[in-house]
Design a protein around this nucleic acid. Structure first.
Lengths: 217, 217, 217, 217
DNA sequence: GATGAATGAGAATTCATTCAT
DNA sequence: GATGAATGAATTCTCATTCAT
């Protein structure tokens, strides 16, 4: 509130912000570990506090309620994913050359949440259940938008014809698959197979959409 | 309170079973209404008992715990859906002739849970979260299996080439989309658009799978 | 809720009501003792539960929240006082003959709450603070109404001229005095002196009101 | 933040005292506003600190605990009231000539606490509940003492016969009425009616006391 | 089978107070 | 003097489950 502005124009965090960041990080990390190891239903503010090394009250200095912690975490993770997707799309030839941009993006998507799949399932569920579902589509919309301007990508031009309804469907399909996979323990499919099939699903749906658009023209 | 016991030699179930069935029905209906109107998080055994007209104790005569009620409900609903999908597939020309079998099946799928979408979201979440996710694919597997034997359906033969991984992907995509749609309040898409797009998604993915299988041969 | 009516027309309490009454009594008694011995500010649901011999949950079976317990208690006590005032007014010559009806009523008033003065202070404060202040005037209004029809009482006829504003003043004065006396530990005045002076205060204020009414006529 | 320190040889208090005074004023004002707008039960040290513009720690530089703030405030307000009562009594003919000194004093009483009635109720309750009730009588004792030496006031001589018990009764009656009126939202009576009736109550009680004293002589 | 009063562990949240800076 | 991040004991309230009737 009383955000005093000493050290103006300097990029180093003020002590206040430093501490803030530290506490929030600790809280997030504790929450992540707990969700991953015991599930959301066993997550309590007391346990978060204990594991984070802070007192319960401190949680409430940073978040209005327990639930806000999960939403904030989800957002941070989502941001991270967006960034890594972006990176995957723009740095074309890191390792495998012959993988399409779409697949690279799907790879980044699947790798999100630091590989903590139970956490991923929980955070996605939380976001959907709390009316923030639309935020989940950000990474996928990013991909679609990127591909729209890439001519060499199979299906690139077709992306332009995706209606908002179709974007909705695509988004939910991808999120739904990853979420289910995560919640079921990632046992049924290898990450790689998942990536490949997601890519197929996306590319084929997009392709169809374009054809349909052509016919109706 | 004083439920009179007829002992006439009729072919109906014994009074015991009758009563049983009645109670379970009442409990399910009460649960459904509560989840639909107030959300799972507000669902308590006390409220179920009150609305069902039975005492709390009675709930425990039929189910080991609160959570078992939801699982049992989900299974019953899933059964109903399987039946209605079956009907949609085998009674070809009820109203609209020019809709594909796949779409009819998708229609049956979307209409499931008696149109109670919040309930649907909750039951699906419960099933996934509790390790019963695989049961959710039953209706979709039914569709796939049916189509495998129907030559006139577009993509029918191709179904034969769906690998189990691909079936998994397809299942989770469809369930994920419907679940998200339900949990977001069914506002973003009309049920009809949903059906149509689901059909496209399924048909295109299946088609691709077949082509891929051909190429790899 | 499901208030079943077996044993209709019989005055004995049903088992349900019996138990109910028992629990409520125990809760009230525990609350009373705690307030009396430690003050309202130290009153917690846990302590009430422990002292009453019931579990915390039981409190919530009977009252929506902690605060409702105090309001309900205050009402019960107020009822008791109303009854004892009534008795004092209608049974004219129990012990002392030469005391006026007003004073007898004041005596009943002062004796209220079973002599637990700290409890009295707390309950009165609670009622005032929670917008139920008007209920506190019931006993005093009872007295005024009674006196209005008693010719032999000094000031009886004058009561008829009390305006509602004046009744308000009178009520708050009496309640205020008794409340302060109770909260201060009843040390400054003997109950008897209190009674006598309250009587004087009331009688003189009423007398004046009547005269004023005459003059303005 | 950077409070400049003037060191000129002026007669004012030292900077230290100045600052002190400023801080206490700010704390009192913040407390007053909070109590008035949200009630005592929602009063927290954090909120006081925020509104006052000081840090929480600073509160503890000036007061041993939260509760001490309220007591100190009550005392300051009481002092103010005593002064204004004194002024009302000694400056006889400011506006209305024909109002008695008693009524003028009652007017000053009713106007106390800067018209913040919720605050008044809270402070009075605090004082009573914490064993400082006797301090509340100061303004009224002042009035009584003043009137004892004023022959022209109706009932002036009679004041001399007020026993300490009667003074006690009178004090509590007046405080009780004003307090109830304040806590009930000042809606039932206009301030003027309140003043007038308080005056009547006081004058009649005092008058009676004198008569009684005469008779017993 | 049916009941529902009773339970009590457990959860979220608050807030006066401290203390290192 | 001033600060405000951190604390954690304390409190209210919930609700799945049991069990005597």
């Amino acid at each position: 509130m009383t955000q005093s502005k000493r050290h103006s124009g300097d990029t180093r965090r003020t002590p206040r912000q430093q501490r803030s960041r530290q506490a929030v990080d600790a809280i997030f990390e504790a929450t992540a570990r707990l969700v991953e190891s015991q599930g959301v239903e066993r997550l309590t503010t007391a346990r978060i506090a204990e594991l984070s090394g802070y007192g319960v009250g401190t949680l409430y200095d940073y978040f209005p309620d327990k639930y806000a912690i999960l939403v904030a975490m989800a957002r941070r993770e989502l941001d991270t994913i967006v960034k890594s997707v972006q990176q995957a799309l723009t740095q074309p030839d890191t390792t495998k050359e012959n993988t399409s941009a779409t697949q690279k993006a799907m790879h980044a998507l699947v790798c999100g949440f630091g590989g903590r799949q139970r956490l991923r399932g929980a955070l996605l569920t939380t976001m959907i259940a709390s009316g923030h579902a639309s935020e989940l589509s950000a990474p996928i919309e990013l991909i679609v938008n990127f591909l729209r301007h890439q001519d060499q990508e199979p299906g690139a031009k077709e992306m332009n014809r995706l209606s908002s309804d179709q974007l909705y469907i695509l988004t939910r399909a991808v999120v739904g698959i990853i979420r289910a996979w995560a919640m079921e323990g990632c046992t049924r499919l290898s990450p790689h197979t998942l990536e490949v099939e997601l890519t197929h699903l996306v590319q084929n749906y997009v392709h169809h959409a374009a054809c349909a658009a052509d016919q109706s023209t």
